[in-house]
């Protein structure tokens, strides 16, 4: 990893996957740590972890309570009620939020999916191709172009929005999914090219040379040699981009114009928070409907997730 100028990636790698050859050492380290494990430290860690979880827990509990109960008492009373057997739970809030005619989050959920898939596949494919050329094809101006692409990362996406929007309007695609797909793809490219280039550079030159001697062109080398070796990197960045698009508010708000036909969940939920600020039954369920996919990804793919997020944390 010596050519990677982003310590976050290497650090995350080191944390996520201990090198197999040093298993003996890491075993000893673990035993040593256990010996050093300090009851005070454990206590503070536990308190902080609980403190960090309470806000989320409160809204989660609320989303399963009947509407009347939510208005009448705080969510914490549920713990007393559970013991006295008076606690009531229901899925009504979720039903109202998903299918109620005034909220209808179900159709926004679909929009989120339709927006996210192409907005992940397109930039990663384009970035892989560009990264390959920057890493393994010699051409004049290559270093200059690569530095230029790298430097584009500092452009805040805000600065591009008004001109992009008018370009979409004059192309006649304003208010369609194409605007969001294209915008997300464009905004992802500088970071994606830079990171994937670093991973590609780490692949031994001898492998590429051997393929070239066998008569393979760049396209064959790309598909047969590079892609299989890059699967972990692609997965890490793919998850990061997936969450970035799924959780995004600004890009969707500007380019979809918040119309129900194309706007994603985040836009609708943020809108509900403004227009129906006190309607906690719908808001609490709505918030968790918009968060369930990221939460599943986080719990299921935590290792890749942390790696991807750290690698891409400077984006935006």
């Amino acid at each position: 990893m010596s050519t990677t100028p982003t310590p976050p990636v290497t650090d995350a790698d080191a944390a996520a996957t201990p090198a197999p050859r040093s298993r003996g050492v890491s075993d000893r380290a673990r035993i040593a740590r256990k010996r050093l494990s300090n009851p005070w430290a454990s206590g503070i860690a536990l308190v902080l972890a609980v403190l960090w979880t309470i806000p989320t827990l409160g809204l989660l509990v609320t989303s399963f309570r009947p509407e009347l109960e939510i208005r009448r008492s705080g969510w914490w009373t549920i713990f007393g009620d559970v013991f006295s057997g008076e606690a009531q739970f229901s899925l009504d809030n979720y039903e109202t939020a998903l299918f109620g005619s005034s909220t209808n989050l179900g159709s926004y959920f679909l929009n989120s999916i339709v927006i996210t898939l192409p907005a992940v596949i397109i930039p990663i494919t384009l970035a892989l191709l560009a990264a390959y050329a920057f890493a393994w094809i010699e051409f004049p101006g290559r270093d200059f172009l690569f530095v230029a692409v790298f430097a584009l990362q500092i452009i805040p996406i805000q600065i591009t929005m008004i001109p992009l929007l008018s370009a979409y309007v004059s192309a006649g695609v304003a208010g369609t999914f194409w605007t969001v797909w294209l915008s997300h793809s464009i905004f992802a490219l500088p970071l994606a090219i830079f990171l994937l280039h670093n991973f590609m550079k780490d692949i031994p030159a001898s492998l590429v040379e051997a393929a070239r001697v066998d008569g393979a062109g760049h396209v064959k080398i790309f598909f047969r040699v590079m892609l299989p070796l890059l699967v972990p990197a692609i997965a890490a960045f793919g998850i990061f981009q997936f969450l970035w698009v799924w959780n995004d508010l600004l890009v969707a708000l500007v380019f979809t114009g918040a119309t129900p036909d194309v706007a994603p969940l985040t836009v609708r939920v943020a809108e509900l928070a403004g227009s129906r600020g006190g309607d906690w039954p719908v808001l609490s369920a709505g918030a968790f409907i918009s968060m369930v996919v990221p939460l599943v990804v986080f719990l299921g793919l935590q290792r890749y997730f942390v790696r991807g997020l750290l690698a891409g944390s400077v984006k935006g």
């Binding site: 959780n247 928070a273 918009s290 968060m291």
Partner: peptide
């Protein structure tokens, strides 16, 4: 502690608004 990083800032805002 890492969990809030996974959810959207919109979701986080609603959690705290509550």
């Amino acid at each position: 502690v890492f969990l809030p990083m996974a959810i959207s800032m919109v979701g986080a805002s609603i959690i705290w608004k509550f």
